[in-house]
Amino acid sequence: HERALMVNRLQKLTRMLRVHPDPKWKQEQQELIKRLK
């Protein structure tokens, strides 16, 4: 369940980064990718 939330968050971040590349979001995205591996 928590994994699904993280995947959701990651997808949302990816969409937001396409619109507005924010370093903070980029960092969070990298963190999520690490944790999901």
Rank of each mutant, 00 (worst) to 15 (best):
R15W: 08
I33H: 02
P23G: 05
K34F: 11
P21N: 13
K12I: 13
L32S: 01
L36V: 01
R18Q: 10
E31A: 09
P23E: 06
L10E: 00
Q30Y: 09
K34S: 08
V7A: 08
K24R: 12
W25V: 12
P23V: 05
L10W: 03
N8T: 15
L17G: 00
P21K: 08
M6Q: 04
Q11N: 11
V7F: 13
L13F: 02
L32P: 00
M16L: 13
D22H: 11
L5G: 09
I33V: 06
R3T: 07
L32C: 02
V19S: 11
L5S: 13
Q29L: 15
R9F: 06
Q29Y: 14
R18A: 13
K34A: 12
T14K: 10
R18N: 05
L17Q: 02
L13N: 00
K34N: 09
Q11R: 15
R15A: 12
P21T: 07
T14G: 05
H1P: 11
Q11C: 15
E2D: 10
K37R: 14
L36Q: 00
V7H: 09
I33Y: 06
L32Q: 00
L32K: 00
L10P: 00
Q27R: 12
Q29N: 02
R18S: 07
R9E: 03
V19G: 11
L32Y: 02
L36D: 02
A4W: 14
P23W: 05
L36Y: 02
H1L: 12
Q29T: 07
M16R: 04
E2V: 10
L17M: 05
E28R: 03
M6E: 03
Q30L: 13
R9L: 07
Q29S: 05
E28P: 01
R18C: 15
A4L: 12
L17W: 00
L17R: 02
A4S: 08
A4Y: 11
V19M: 12
H1F: 14
K24M: 09
K12P: 00
H20M: 09
L13C: 02
L13P: 00
L36A: 02
L10A: 00
Q11K: 15
L17V: 03
K12S: 07
V7S: 03
K24G: 07
L36T: 01
W25L: 15
R18K: 11
Q30A: 10
R35M: 08
R3I: 14
P23L: 06
K12H: 12
R9P: 01
Q11V: 13
A4D: 11
Q27D: 07
M16G: 01
R15Y: 06
L5N: 10
R15H: 09
H1W: 15
L5K: 14
E2F: 10
R9Q: 05
K24A: 10
M16Q: 03
K12V: 13
M6N: 02
R18M: 11
Q30I: 12
R35L: 14
W25H: 07
A4P: 04
K37F: 14
D22Y: 09
D22L: 10
E31F: 07
R35H: 06
M6H: 03
K12F: 15
K26Q: 08
L13G: 00
P21D: 12
M16I: 06
L36F: 03
L10K: 00
E28V: 04
K34M: 12
M16F: 03
K37Q: 15
R18P: 00
M6S: 03
W25T: 06
R9S: 03
R15L: 10
A4V: 11
K26I: 12
R35Q: 10
N8S: 14
M16A: 04
P21E: 09
P21A: 10
K26M: 11
V19K: 14
K12M: 14
R18T: 06
A4Q: 14
L5I: 12
V19W: 11
P21R: 07
Q27I: 10
I33M: 04
E28Y: 05
K34P: 01
E31K: 06
W25K: 05
H20D: 10
Q11G: 05
R3H: 10
E28F: 04
R9N: 00
H20A: 06
Q29A: 14
M16H: 03
I33F: 05
E28A: 04
R3E: 05
M6L: 13
K34G: 06
R9W: 07
N8E: 15
Q29E: 05
R35G: 03
E2C: 15
W25S: 03
V19F: 13
Q27M: 11
I33N: 03
R9C: 09
P21G: 07
E2W: 14
K37N: 11
T14Q: 08
I33D: 00
Q29H: 05
E31R: 08
Q30M: 12
Q30D: 06
T14R: 11
L32F: 02
L13H: 00
V7C: 15
R3K: 09
K34C: 13
Q30V: 08
K37S: 10
Q27E: 12
R35E: 05
P21Y: 15
M6W: 06
K12N: 06
Q27W: 07
L5A: 14
E28T: 03
L17P: 00
Q30R: 11
L32W: 01
N8P: 01
P23T: 05
L5F: 10
R15T: 05
T14N: 12
D22M: 05
L13Q: 01
V7N: 04
P21F: 15
Q27G: 05
E28W: 07
L17I: 08
K26C: 05
P21Q: 11
A4G: 09
W25G: 05
L17A: 03
K26D: 03
E2Q: 11
K12L: 14
Q27Y: 06
R18E: 06
M16K: 05
E31Q: 09
Q11I: 15
R15V: 07
R3M: 08
K24E: 07
R3V: 11
R18H: 04
R3N: 07
D22W: 08
R15I: 09
H1T: 13
K24S: 08
L10F: 02
Q30W: 12
W25Q: 05
L13A: 01
Q30G: 05
E31V: 05
Q29C: 13
R9T: 03
H20Y: 13
K24N: 07
T14W: 08
K34Y: 07
E28L: 06
H20L: 08
A4I: 13
M16S: 03
V7G: 04
A4M: 14
Q27V: 07
P21I: 05
W25F: 10
M6A: 04
L17D: 01
P21M: 09
L32E: 00
L17E: 00
W25R: 05
E2I: 12
I33G: 02
E2L: 14
R3Y: 14
K26S: 04
K12D: 07
R35N: 05
M6D: 04
T14S: 08
E31T: 08
H1E: 11
K24Y: 09
I33W: 06
M6Y: 03
P21V: 06
K12G: 02
Q30P: 01
L36I: 06
A4H: 13
Q11S: 10
N8L: 15
R15Q: 13
Q11A: 13
R15P: 01
H1A: 13
E31Y: 09
R9V: 03
E31C: 14
R18L: 10
L17K: 01
Q29W: 12
L17Y: 03
L5V: 11
M6G: 02
Q30S: 08
W25D: 04
R3P: 02
L17C: 02
T14P: 00
D22G: 04
R9K: 04
H1I: 12
Q27A: 14
E31H: 06
L13I: 09
H20N: 12
K37P: 02
K34D: 03
H1N: 13
Q11L: 14
